[in-house]
Design a protein around this nucleic acid. Sequence first.
DNA 1: CCGGGCCTGCGG
DNA 2: CCGCAGGCCCGG
Length: 278
Amino acid sequence: MFYQIVKMPELPEVETIVRELKTSLKGKTIKNIQVKSSLSVYPSLEAIIRNARGYTVLDVRRRGKFIILVLNEALRLVVHLRMTGRLMWSVNEGRAKYVRVVINFVDETSLFFSDVRKFGRVWFYTEKDYKKGTGISRLGYEPLKMELAQFCNLFEHRKGILKNSLLRQDLISGIGNIYADEICFKAGLHPKSRLEHIKKQQIVKLYESVQVCLREGIKNCGVSVRDFVGTKGDLGKHQNYLRVYGRKGVKCYKCGSIIEKTVVAGRGTFYCPKCQRL
DNA sequence: CCGGGCCTGCGG
DNA sequence: CCGCAGGCCCGG
């Protein structure tokens, strides 16, 4: 029985996880933390083990793609899932070997952090230091709390390739490869469009596309992988609503053209050659 | 802005 | 068996 399984967690997926954790984790007191892979935990294993006992989860928050557990005001347990990180309530045999960190609570429940590729990270910091220590301090706007004017200031006089900028966490935090492609499609802009060639009216449309794509993703509880077997929490179903991502060689829902795949910003990039202009 | 590195599983 | 998957960091 998995708690929640998503792939390539971006803002909507992380938001879904945080909402679930908020209801099920708040008020729980930590008994201990087991670290199976020291690669996964910062700044130090000793600090984790020594400091975790007895602390209660006061709140669960999201900033960009970071998950933040607020422990007794002064402490923060921060998780970044990167590519293959997962948080779950229990573990089946297939996933057991990839469990890197286990947080045990005094009520005998446990939260498991698993990660096949060990890219994901768990940090344990004081309230004072966690933003700097985790990189949260370098994040840009929270996209769903960003005003149109702020977005325009950011993009109107910027140069460079559109998708590269959408992926930059220090400008806007939370957009990853999937939603970047979906946002570009929604806005009718080619991912390789140069920002200096985009007119004001299209920048406004881009802003609206960011809002709509991310909100739709959240509404659909994110994109789930095929082996989802969860029983607790909402099943992500946004993979059924993606317009371009993963659709190479099949027809565009809007115009019937064949969706193409290229590489932008070093990532696989899907777009409709007719709906999305440079 | 690009490319390599971090990691591992999996598909061609 | 090679290269892709693509988040983030770093050096060039």
